[in-house]
Simulated assay, not measured.
Amino acid sequence: MPTVNPRRGYLLGLTAYVIWGLFPLYFKAIAAVPALEIIVHRVLWSALCGLLLLMVWKHPGWWRELRQNPRRLAVLAASGSLIAVNWLTYVWAVNNGRMLEASLGYYINPLLNVLLGMLLLGERLRPLQWLAVACAVVGVAQQVWQVGSLPWVSLVLALSFGFYGLIRKQAPVAALPGLVVETWLLLPIALGWLLLHPAATSSQAAFWSTSQALWLAAAGPITLVPLLCFNAAARHLPYTTLGFLQYLAPTLVLLQAVFLYDEHLAPSTLLAFVFIWIGLALYSVDAWFNLRKAS
């Protein structure tokens, strides 16, 4: 059994969530490339880098298990589609001045996971969890009432990532092989898109002599590095601790939106955040109490 090193786990976990939280800086650097084209290249370069990593970082038996359980391939195709929707929505939001909504979506996500567990997995919610989910619902509802429309970016991000996690539970494949298979299943669509769009920015020979081309090619390692850090951290930390660290990423996105990219934090949006933060605080307290009971 591998030695557990909490300090190493915290460092790896912080690294993963800080990188995820700083993703807007990367996507802003390639804002000249349309969001859909960025995702096409994210699939291409992630598939390539992931395959190279699998050749170095062995995961014995993962391909044999997939061959013996073809249903898992169908599950990974579905989860790959969801993560592509999540990536596309996030990149579009960052490069269209909707980072606050993106941040709100990832704050909502853990509370949505609790709700999905109840509705689809038959899990029973504890009183504090009910209160936490109710706060999230109130936050979204008041946003609809004040603004007059659903915060669709937030909801698409939260729902796509929430269902992604739910579906991946049905295919117990390690994170790296799972991501590699997901991206390889999306590869024909990505290549088909490039073939059908010869006028795309990245289809021009001149583009590959610019610094933007290097940034675009970096999509593979930038996608994989935080994932690897996260999975390494999970071996050294309780999952509940990782759950607390996950709030770091949307907080960094929120701070960048307001202080770096001058997005306006309207009172109605701030009120929605306040309700979500109260819900997350209740959720965290509930998780902490249950962790103490279990120990």
Rank of each mutant, 00 (worst) to 15 (best):
S103D: 07
L166K: 03
A93E: 07
A31Y: 01
L66I: 04
P226H: 09
S295W: 08
W184T: 13
L100G: 11
V94A: 08
Q146M: 09
G9D: 00
P34W: 02
A232K: 07
T210D: 01
V274E: 11
A84M: 12
L104N: 15
T269V: 10
A200C: 12
S295P: 08
P127T: 12
V18L: 11
V4Y: 12
W215I: 13
L270Q: 13
T251Q: 00
V91P: 07
Q146E: 15
I39V: 14
L186T: 11
F275C: 03
V56Q: 06
D286P: 06
L245H: 03
E101C: 05
M118I: 10
L265Q: 06
L245Q: 08
G165M: 00
H197M: 00
T89W: 07
A174D: 15
Q129S: 09
I39T: 10
V147F: 04
L242D: 03
G50D: 15
G13R: 00
S211K: 07
P2G: 14
V156N: 14
K169P: 12
V114S: 10
A272D: 07
P110D: 09
Y247D: 09
A213G: 01
K58I: 15
L291C: 05
V173M: 04
A102K: 13
I39G: 14
T89N: 04
L12G: 10
E263S: 12
L191V: 06
L116S: 05
L196R: 01
G9Q: 00
G178M: 05
L191C: 05
A175N: 05
R98N: 08
G243W: 04
M118K: 11
N231C: 05
W208K: 01
F244C: 10
R42M: 02
L51G: 15
T201W: 04
L121A: 12
G122P: 13
P221H: 15
Q143K: 15
I38V: 08
V138A: 03
Q68T: 01
G162S: 08
P34H: 08
A272Y: 02
N109T: 11
L191H: 02
L52R: 01
P177V: 06
R8A: 13
R124F: 04
R124Q: 15
R42K: 14
L73C: 02
L51S: 15
V85H: 07
R8Y: 07
W130K: 15
Y90P: 04
L270I: 06
Q142V: 00
F273K: 09
P151A: 09
L22V: 14
V40Y: 01
R72H: 08
L265M: 11
I30E: 03
D286K: 02
W152I: 03
L166S: 01
I38E: 15
L191N: 07
